[in-house]
Amino acid sequence: MGLLTFVALGGGAVAGVVGAPFVLGAVGFTSAGIAAGSYAAGMMSAAAVANGGGVVAGSTVAVLQAVGAAGLSGTATAVVTGTGAAVGTAVGWLAAIII
């Protein structure tokens, strides 16, 4: 791997971590709750139907809403930044291949 590949990987990882709060807000996980008609509302509806009417504490929807409402901290930081870094790194790797 060349220098450009490492730069692309690092840039993708940083973009994934820094961009996580913005992406969560954009899909509907806001500080005021889940936005009506958003992608997050669809996720919450599907989770509730699958679990007999409620969203299970600790589920993906519950964790993402907690992060959207309170910001990134503690366990939520580890979950979101780990996922964001993995996705960002993958995007950076793909960009390096294309370049």
Rank of each mutant, 00 (worst) to 15 (best):
A36H: 11
I34W: 01
G10W: 10
G53C: 07
A57N: 14
T77W: 11
G19P: 08
G52W: 07
G53Y: 10
G42H: 03
S73Q: 13
A32E: 12
A32R: 13
V67M: 11
T30E: 12
T75S: 12
L3G: 09
A47V: 01
A8W: 05
V87A: 13
A8C: 15
V23W: 05
P21L: 06
W93I: 00
A90N: 05
G2C: 11
V63G: 03
M44F: 04
M43R: 00
G2A: 11
G37Q: 07
V67N: 10
A40I: 00
Q65V: 01
A76G: 15
A50R: 13
A90C: 10
V63Q: 08
V87K: 05
V91C: 12
G52Y: 09
L24Y: 08
V79N: 06
A86R: 04
T77E: 13
L9G: 04
M43H: 00
S45Y: 01
A47P: 00
G10N: 06
T81F: 12
T30G: 03
L9H: 02
I98W: 10
V87L: 15
A15Y: 06
A66Y: 06
V7Y: 02
A36I: 00
M1Y: 10
L72P: 09
G2T: 00
S59W: 02
W93K: 00
T77Y: 11
G28K: 05
L94R: 01
L72D: 09
M44D: 11
V17Y: 06
G19M: 09
G68K: 02
A90H: 03
V67K: 02
I98S: 03
V17I: 15
V61H: 01
T30Q: 11
M44R: 06
A48K: 04
T83W: 12
A32Q: 13
A78G: 15
I99R: 15
V14N: 05
F29S: 01
L9N: 01
Q65P: 00
G16C: 10
A96Y: 06
V67A: 15
V87Q: 03
P21T: 04
G82Y: 09
V67H: 10
G42M: 06
M1D: 00
T89W: 12
T81R: 14
M1W: 09
S38V: 03
A48I: 06
V91F: 14
A78Y: 12
Q65I: 02
V91N: 03
T5D: 09
V91W: 08
S31T: 10
M44K: 05
A35T: 07
G82I: 07
G19N: 02
A96L: 09
G54Y: 08
N51M: 03
G33S: 11
A78K: 13
A86H: 03
M44P: 00
A85F: 10
T60L: 15
V63N: 09
V79E: 06
I34G: 01
Y39N: 07
M44N: 04
G16L: 12
V23Y: 03
G16T: 05
A35N: 05
V23R: 03
A78E: 09
I99S: 14
G92H: 04
V67F: 07
A78S: 11
G92I: 12
S59A: 04
V63P: 06
V61W: 01
V87G: 02
T5L: 13
A26T: 09
A36D: 14
S59Q: 05
A8H: 04
G19S: 08
I99Y: 09
L72R: 12
A36V: 02
G71F: 03
I97K: 13
V80G: 07
A36M: 02
G53F: 07
G42N: 04
T81K: 15
